[in-house]
């Protein structure tokens, strides 16, 4: 698997896939896409990078342990639902923050935070399973 061509291409391919996964994640609010599918794309980017350049370099590249990443995702995902407590609304009621920036309407919302949480959970969980399988292959 570790041919020269693959090893040269893989970092660029992985970077492109991560970028695309973020695009899919943000697109998911009103159109097909979203946190889960974005997370899967990012996790496969990690997997490809791992096959080409070794698991150790992937772990170095993502800095945090994959399980910590998914823990953080779960954390912000759950907290996104709690904000409505302060407005006397039910758990998971969406809250919006809308403002104009250079004449472009920017809508920030708790569903977006939740979706980012889902993205991180999927990247962490699937990424750690993929890396574990690749590590076994190596030895």
């Amino acid at each position: 698997m570790r041919t020269v061509i693959f090893r040269t291409i893989a970092p660029y391919l992985a970077a492109l896939m991560v970028l695309f996964s973020i695009f899919v994640l943000l697109r998911g609010h009103n159109e097909p896409g979203g946190g889960f599918i974005g997370g899967l794309i990012a996790a496969s980017a990690l997997a490809i990078f791992g096959i080409a350049c070794g698991v150790a370099s992937v772990r170095r590249a993502i800095v945090f342990h994959p399980m910590s990443i998914s823990g953080f995702g779960l954390f912000i995902g759950a907290l996104a639902g709690v904000l409505s407590f302060f407005k006397n609304q039910a758990f998971m009621t969406s809250q919006w923050l809308i403002f104009d920036l250079f004449d472009v309407e920017i809508a920030l919302s708790t569903p977006l935070v939740f979706d980012i949480g889902v993205y991180l959970v999927v990247v962490g969980a699937i990424g750690s399973i993929a890396l574990a399988l690749e590590e076994r292959e190596a030895d």
């Binding site: 342990h65 399980m67 910590s68 998914s70 823990g71 953080f72 995702g73 779960l74 954390f75 759950a78 907290l79 639902g81 709690v82 407590f85 006397n88 609304q89 039910a90 758990f91």
Partner: peptide, 28 residues
């Protein structure tokens, strides 16, 4: 209509453990 703060006790057991579990996962 507004939800009484006490009704949040229904989700509190799942919420405490989920947020707490995530926190512990980060501090593994």
């Amino acid at each position: 209509t507004p939800i009484a703060a006490g009704d949040w006790l229904i989700v509190a057991p799942s919420l405490i453990t989920m947020v707490g579990g995530a926190l512990c996962l980060m501090l593994r």
